[in-house]
Design a binder for these strands. Structure first.
Lengths: 209, 209
DNA sequence: CCTGTTACGATGCGATCGTATTGCAAAACA
DNA sequence: TGTTTTGCAATACGATCGCATCGTAACAGG
């Protein structure tokens, strides 16, 4: 996002990514505490301890800031998933569906922000596209994990992997798991359900594959 | 909510409930189209074709109006459920969990508004209490329906009803069904899932009880 | 040192917000 | 026919909003 003709000149060197991240994190705090309604450039600036001018400099408009907060949230979740790369498919599957269950205050904040964006996505097409892409990615990854897990167990039984055509059974399983995880997450978030119970329900569901 | 010493004097007779409902319906339209962020007294007044003064007269403050829209939404859903009073438990159960799946534009509007309130409930304790009470009611009703359905089938097999102690199995089934319905509803709402597929998944889930 | 570019704080503007206030028309009662 | 009470439209007000603009400090290259 530099000027079109960047040739190495950059006075006043600062870490742009660091600055942007500080502001996005403050944005998340504001959303978690006051909802998306409570987001104003002044509030975010105060929470981050910076001036409004800085936010304008790095994000331009409020809409761009809010959207950047959404993409950062998605990428942060994806980063957490990649750290499980060397686990068994079944463990990774359980991580995908139960990672969002809020267990501590940090988790509560993340999932509060996520739900705020979900609601916003109903009326905001840019946010909707970001979340739709993330959901499609999660769905496809779940399908892969379900098939990998099934193949693992088929190998134990001496059979080869199934056909590679699209797998409606696995797709439906994935959708069911993810939808169930979303619903349980909400109930934990509003205090209607204990985190442990939600996780154990998801474990049971994954175990029945 | 009349003056404390009402003795039948009431000039300028109007139907208060009708007036309130017109305003609440306009509020729902605004929420469905622009989200809760887009709610302002002026917008709602314009959508309802009335003056701001009337909204102030009937609801006082914006916060009270938004909360009234929430309780009206809950009661409207409850009214829809009571119309199924003379159906079999299993049919009623399917209605409870699949009624919120949006099938037409009216359904989409209702569930958009509902999701907006869900997100708001994270930071608004009054809304949270209304939704929590509704959720608890739905959960208890589902438990009743699941047990009634089970007893029906036990009667066919010649056995009596089970014990009346709290039923952890039925409770967990109810929670799982409702959470799954919430997650599927969201996916249909944002266009990631066809309504028919969501309903058929819920039918399969209810059928496996 | 000089010049150019970047980073960003400070400030101002017009729009919009929720709400308090005011005033008046219509209807019930005296 | 007043009088009173209600229903509501109109408007005024102060706060807050997003954003544009301006000024300047910091630094790189010449």
């Amino acid at each position: 996002m530099r000027p079109y003709c960047y040739r190495g000149r950059m006075p006043r060197v600062v870490d742009h990514e660091q600055r942007r991240w500080e502001i996005v994190y403050a944005l998340w705090l504001v959303i978690a505490q006051h909802g998306i309604e409570g987001v104003s450039l002044r509030h975010v600036a105060a929470e981050a301890g910076v001036s409004m001018g800085r936010i304008q400099h790095y994000f331009g408009t409020k809409e761009a800031l809010v959207l950047a907060g959404c993409t950062s949230l998605v990428q942060s979740a994806y980063g957490g998933y990649r750290e499980t790369a060397d686990a068994a498919p079944r463990e990774r599957l359980l991580h995908v569906v139960s990672q969002q269950i809020p267990r501590d205050d940090a988790g509560r904040m993340g999932v509060s922000v996520w739900y705020a964006y979900v609601a916003k996505s109903i009326n905001d097409s840019a946010v909707r596209q970001v979340l739709a892409e993330a959901r499609r990615g999660a769905e496809e990854e779940c399908v892969r994990l379900i098939r990998a897990d099934r193949d693992d167990r088929a190998d134990l039984a001496g059979a080869g992997p199934g056909d590679d055509a699209d797998d409606p059974a696995a797709l439906q399983q994935a959708r069911r798991l993810l939808a169930l995880a979303d619903g349980l997450t909400l109930r934990v978030l509003v205090g209607d359900l204990e985190p442990a119970e939600a996780v154990s329900m998801l474990e049971a569901e994954v175990g029945r594959l």
